[in-house]
């Protein structure tokens, strides 16, 4: 019997795959959402969301994409997967996403095509929005300058394109590569790890969405999850997923603190390693977490 059956879930409650149904509307996410929406609706131009690993930036980006429905918005989410992208490629892709059928080869041609398309969108009474996830990968000054150029596409009274960056805190370093662009940040939001109380709510939220009828983690277990995962949603997911699997193997109805500690040790999580954005060495923390996630993925294979 799978742990889904054992605990009466309809689906995995702690999958790290993006799924809008599991969106946890924490206070900080609500606030960020409201601010980003305002930035777009009032054509502010550039808004930035920064946060540590696993704090929900991608989830928020997808949430925003869902909210920016096609009726009122021409919106597109670009997810950066490598940092070697050229300004031309970026520009061509953005033009394509904004509805330019066949972007030209020349940068100026593309810009003209994009401008005309943005005017069309504006004439339809819609807003054009580009969301860039993993924006910390935009590491060159040329790329930053390209975005500044895009933000300059405007008509009297308003900008024609809105850009939302979602990225790790180092994104802010990248923005500073082009100081005029950094000055154009009209809205900034920061996502942090969850508090202990939010961790409990987050766990219950996901259990409930997955079809759970009861809280299968006892209080001590939740405290332990928060301690070992450091309030980072992605780590909470991984740890809880392992705990549920272990609980089912042990035929337990309830996940207790011992199971959480055992699983945290197995995952090589340390209670005092909870990342705190203002204290952690970013590069070191990033490496630690990435290596940890890799290990987790490797471990999770035989479990599947």
């Amino acid at each position: 019997m799978s742990y889904l059956e054992h605990f009466g879930f309809e689906q995995e409650p702690f999958s790290n795959a993006p799924d809008a149904r599991f969106y946890f509307d924490s206070e900080q996410h609500q606030q960020a959402q409201r601010r980003l929406r305002f930035a777009v609706d009032s054509n502010k131009g550039l808004a930035v969301v920064v946060g540590g690993i696993g704090t929900g930036k991608t989830t928020l980006a997808r949430r925003m994409l869902d909210l920016l429905g096609t009726e009122r918005y021409q919106s597109s989410l670009l997810i950066m997967v490598h940092s070697g992208i050229t300004p031309e490629w970026l520009l061509s892709h953005i033009a394509l996403q904004m509805g330019v059928a066949t972007p030209g080869n020349d940068r100026l041609v593309i810009l003209r095509q994009l401008y005309e398309r943005l005017l069309e969108i504006d004439a339809q009474g819609r807003r054009a929005v580009i969301l860039i996830d993993e924006a910390q990968m935009l590491q060159t000054r040329e790329l930053m300058e390209e975005f500044r150029g895009l933000l300059n596409l405007e008509i009297p009274g308003r900008k024609l394109l809105n850009i939302l960056f979602f990225g790790l805190p180092e994104l802010e370093e990248n923005l500073r590569l082009d100081p005029p662009l950094a000055q154009r940040v009209a809205m900034r939001c920061e996502l942090t790890s969850l508090t202990a109380g939010n961790t409990a709510s987050y766990i219950w939220h996901r259990l409930r969405i997955a079809g759970g009828q009861r809280m299968v983690f006892d209080d001590d277990a939740i405290a332990a999850v928060h301690q070992y995962a450091g309030g980072v949603p992605r780590l909470i997911n991984t740890l809880c997923d392992n705990c549920l699997f272990e609980g089912a193997l042990l035929n337990r109805e309830q996940i207790d603190e011992k199971i959480v500690i055992d699983m945290a040790k197995a995952l090589d999580l340390h209670g005092d390693a909870a990342p705190r954005s203002e204290e952690v060495d970013l590069d070191q923390g990033l490496e630690q977490i990435e290596s940890m996630l890799e290990r987790l993925e490797m471990k999770s294979c035989p479990l599947a």
Partner: peptide, 13 residues
Amino acid sequence: LGGGDDKGRVSYL
């Protein structure tokens, strides 16, 4: 109707 699918709106660079 178009626009109902996120696939067209999400891309990887």
